[in-house]
Design a protein around this nucleic acid. Structure first.
Lengths: 220, 220
DNA sequence: TCAAAAGTGTTGTACCTACACCCATGC
DNA sequence: GCATGGGTGTAGGTACAACACTTTTGA
């Protein structure tokens, strides 16, 4: 089966930047390309959009095919369409952004991916296409979202924490997502203002030092 | 000449939302469609992207073809790709946003446009495709940009003013762009803090009332 | 007793909002 | 003299950044 058109058409792909915190650092999910171009190189998961699916749906489908990860909330980052960004010809991609708790998933290879792996954002392999640019843009957008407490986006931050957590644990998570450190007292003020945080009355145990109070997010 | 592909491909278009201030109100440039679908309806200018041009370049080319307007700074708004957004089949569009001084141009019809006209954003005709949604998104984005004084975007605001202007004139322009009124004294404080505004020592003339001091933007 | 993390307040600055009256001019 | 728009200052609230010492515990 083939498809004929009166005018040439670009291909359209979607890519999803999936961020998570693993081992205390911000990481991004990448796939090793099974096929040329850039065979063997690492890339943002994604692929060609199908004719009957929404862009976001296509992005999620490709993500699941390539990494096994599914059903996560995403938001659009933007379209990338420089004429020479793909050596196969004209390929325009629409990039999406996601933040997921990493215990949800066991990344694995799939249809078009030799392998899927998490990489710390500060220790990336060379990337295929213009994916380094897309990743940098997504990283900046993520920090903006979390800083601005866009709640639907930033709620995910609490998925990186256990049900009850210490303020230090929370600070670690937010600092990792925002990519910068903050003052302890200021963070605590910010957190308790911005979010409904409740003191459980419990104390952490097993630490090598002074036990810390345990808090819980009041979800409505 | 025709083009054959192994897999079906969507079409890709670009659209540019061009905003301006005319007659003291925020207006948007629309074209009347010459062809089906939606023949005779109004739409955001735009069209099919060519194989060798960047998305932004294509958007500007289409804009010039359809309206005669060229060489304006644009920024990307996002991609719209619902499968049923175009009755002709799968068409994905990448929308751009621009703000231009309206005296630059005389909008006119062109290749694919019967007519090009400015419409006040609060008095729009029914729009083709999902263009009402795109326009609403662009309107919100414009207000955000101007409020946040993203200077490269907001600098254009001063193009709506004469070389020397009164503070009231400036307030009119910013209120129109932001879509809301503000207190006179607060506006003046904001303006002089946020921008390098210089008192020329001159006074406006010809007004029916008390002459106003004339200011100038110090451009670097 | 020491190392390590927990915990805790104040101050200055900047910014935003709300708000009311007098002034200069043309008609 | 009156209508119209020009022009001005203050006070309260909120948010953010900077900053240092004491407490509790395990080892």
């Amino acid at each position: 089966m083939s498809y004929t058109y009166e005018f040439p058409r670009p291909s359209v792909t979607t890519d999803i930047l999936v961020f998570s915190i693993r081992d205390g650092v911000l990481q991004v999910l990448l796939i090793e390309r099974k096929l040329d171009p850039f065979k063997g190189a690492w890339a943002i998961p994604g692929g060609f959009v199908q004719m009957d699916e929404d862009l976001a749906t296509g992005a999620l489908r490709e993500l699941e095919e390539e990494t096994g990860l599914s059903g996560i909330p995403i938001r659009q980052l933007g379209a990338y369409g420089a004429p020479d960004r793909d050596p196969r010809g004209r390929v325009i991609t629409v990039a999406f952004l996601a933040l997921v708790p990493s215990d949800d998933l066991q990344a694995r290879g799939g249809s078009d991916a030799e392998d899927a792996r998490w990489f710390p954002v500060d220790d990336l392999p060379p990337l295929a296409f213009d994916h380094a640019q897309i990743l940098a843009d997504g990283r900046a957008e993520l920090a903006r979202d979390v800083t601005a407490s866009i709640h639907d986006s930033a709620l995910v931050a609490f998925d990186f924490l256990p049900e009850t957590f210490t303020l230090s644990q929370a600070q670690q998570v937010f600092e990792t997502l925002r990519g910068e450190e903050m003052d302890k007292r200021n963070f605590r003020k910010w957190l308790t203002n911005e979010w409904a945080i409740e003191d459980t009355g419990e104390k952490s145990t097993g630490g090598r030092h002074r036990p810390a109070a345990l808090f819980r997010l009041e979800r409505d």
